[in-house]
Design a protein around this nucleic acid. Structure first.
Lengths: 344, 344
DNA sequence: ATGAAAGCGCTAACAG
DNA sequence: CTGTTAGCGCTTTCAT
């Protein structure tokens, strides 16, 4: 059983020889560029099939062809939002025949142009930034103007001129507004907010929450990090306060920490305290109590981001279907306000 | 504010000119290959710094240099195990100066060599397969012999000769054995098992569980998929049976589904039923009840997989620190058996 | 509609 | 120790 010495992969020249044409013609049919007679095309296709030819992306990139790969810049991929967005990007990219690279942003590093570009396979490689947090936003800013890119962002800052078409986002503000109104309608006098870190000063979730509170006193938001643990810690003082009867959490992981803190303090949910989150992570419906949350279509958003990028790279690319609007899912963790003191 | 027409990135030739040496010498210092006088090296380094030079990976790959990129082949990245492993790989790779690509395997597709190789940027590109399930295993098998690769696998089948050094795994069997023994020692007459899909017929978690049961009757394992939902569905009949007092779950997500099913059926955990999982996902410690589980160091495993690959590519690469052994974390979801019928 | 030539940025041989 | 010469596989031009 002698090892065949790894027959080098078929190149465009091999295909050309088999098909009896020039390597250039092969390139033409592979890239669907320029006119090629139907007859020739068939011959070439057959040769490609026969040899199992696959184009070498590195060579194509080097020679300056249209990009066929993206690298995704993101923070911690173990967070649900980033992971789901990445999943959407990857799927859309693969279906479109793109290769996808991934590079995780260090939260402590200042993302410089040099650093960011250094993560790419090629200086011109297209980029999609998942910019839900500060490192992502910095990376996005660090990209040289004109660099092919798209981004999933938290919200287009009002300061800028119309945001580039390549930026996509979810309507966090409306989502938070809806969830808060729902809680208020349940009879809660106010709603407290446990915040995830924002990419800017102006979190749209915080804004929507605040707007919904209208003329009521707005309690100070509580910073709670990204994890169940940090939320648990941050929530302990809150759940100890009997005046707090409803808490909106920046995501489902935070809500989990709050649920735990409430339980330890002996406050029943939703009896004594209503808790709501954002995301609708797969686990949220199976918690006890199951979590009222706003479903966010990160996967669709990711596909959308890729779609925008693709249309920059290939103007005739098909339009990406729109992603879903945030949707409030009422489950067991929220209910009518029940006064802490019977005589109130 | 006229847009400067994107000054092409500095090439090795530009550096050479500035440093007053040949492009080859620059290549030598960049790759730390071949002898270069300290003096020249300094000049070159200075030029690199000055021009902000970054090597073009695509060109290097094309020219046949030592690979400096990996692509990770994996199934659904939204599952904790795969996501955490990927995270470990990415971090180790980035620290070593490698680019990482990612390609998700379609569960329904037969992974052929042609398909798998077609996912790479270059036919020779190094690969790490996360082969915890069937598609991963198929992809691994599809790689041509001699292709630079490493893999995080479920378990090295006994059928093979000594497994390649590039394969890494966690000791699932021992982990399951320990967890099951612990449950038995708590007084449970037996332990039921809710299984995740296995990459082969012989899941090591199932095996460890079975071994621990020794001469007791071994209940049939229940297939429960990967998600809380599928586990919830699969667990309903089980939790309805008062003779079932302890359930070991293939991962924490499944355990979550079981917790939910138990609650709906009115069986208290751990009073009436003990539940344990695998993974120690970040949420598990904050569930209610918090979950007894076996912590699995997927991130370390991912780093280990990359380390193995790197040592294939660069024989002098430093050794990867070993990853952690599985560790049983006893929390609130498990407790002593309490007979269903008081008079028993 | 097709072919020929040049070169992308880099590394592997070789020379010196 | 350093420079020179060939390509890697592909996509531009530009011819035909």
């Amino acid at each position: 059983m002698s090892e065949t010495p790894a027959p080098r992969a078929a190149s465009i020249w091999d295909v050309a020889k088999v098909a009896g044409v020039s390597h250039q013609t092969v390139s033409r049919v592979v890239n669907n560029r320029g006119r090629v007679s139907a007859e020739t095309r068939v011959k070439v296709m057959a040769a490609i099939e026969e040899l199992g030819y696959r184009p070498n992306r590195a060579a194509a990139a080097l020679a300056g062809g249209r990009p066929r790969s993206v690298t995704v810049l993101t923070s911690d991929t173990s967070l649900y939002g980033a992971a789901a967005t990445l999943k959407g990007i990857e799927e859309a990219a693969r279906n479109a025949g793109y290769n996808v690279g991934i590079s995780v942003l260090d939260p402590d590093a200042a993302q410089t142009e040099h650093d960011v570009l250094g993560r790419l396979a090629t200086p011109e490689e297209a980029v999609i930034v998942i910019a839900f947090d500060a490192p992502g936003v910095r990376a996005l800013k660090a990209l040289p103007a004109g660099h092919p890119s798209a981004a999933a962002i938290e919200y287009p800052g009002a300061s800028d001129d119309p945001p580039p078409a390549s930026h996509v986002w979810l309507d966090d503000r409306a989502a938070a507004y809806r969830a808060t109104r729902y809680l208020l309608d349940l009879g809660h006098h106010t709603v407290h907010y446990l915040a995830i870190p924002s990419s800017s000063g102006t979190s749209q979730r915080a804004k929507g929450w605040q707007d919904a509170l209208e003329d009521r006193a707005v309690p100070a938001p509580t910073d709670a990090g990204w994890s169940p643990r940090s939320a648990y810690l941050a929530a302990r003082p809150l759940v100890a306060d009997p005046d707090v009867t409803a808490i909106l959490c920046g995501n489902d992981d935070l809500a989990l920490g709050v649920l735990r803190a409430a339980h330890e303090r002996g406050r029943s949910v939703p009896g004594d305290l209503s808790v709501a989150g954002f995301d609708d992570a797969p686990a949220s419906a199976f918690l006890h109590p199951s979590l009222t949350t706003v479903r966010l279509d990160f996967e669709g958003l990711g596909k959308g981001a890729f779609g925008q990028l693709q249309r920059i790279l290939e103007p005739d690319a098909p339009l990406t279907p729109p992603w879903a609007e945030p949707e409030l899912l009422v489950r067991e963790s929220t209910g009518p306000r029940r006064p802490a003191h019977p005589r109130e």
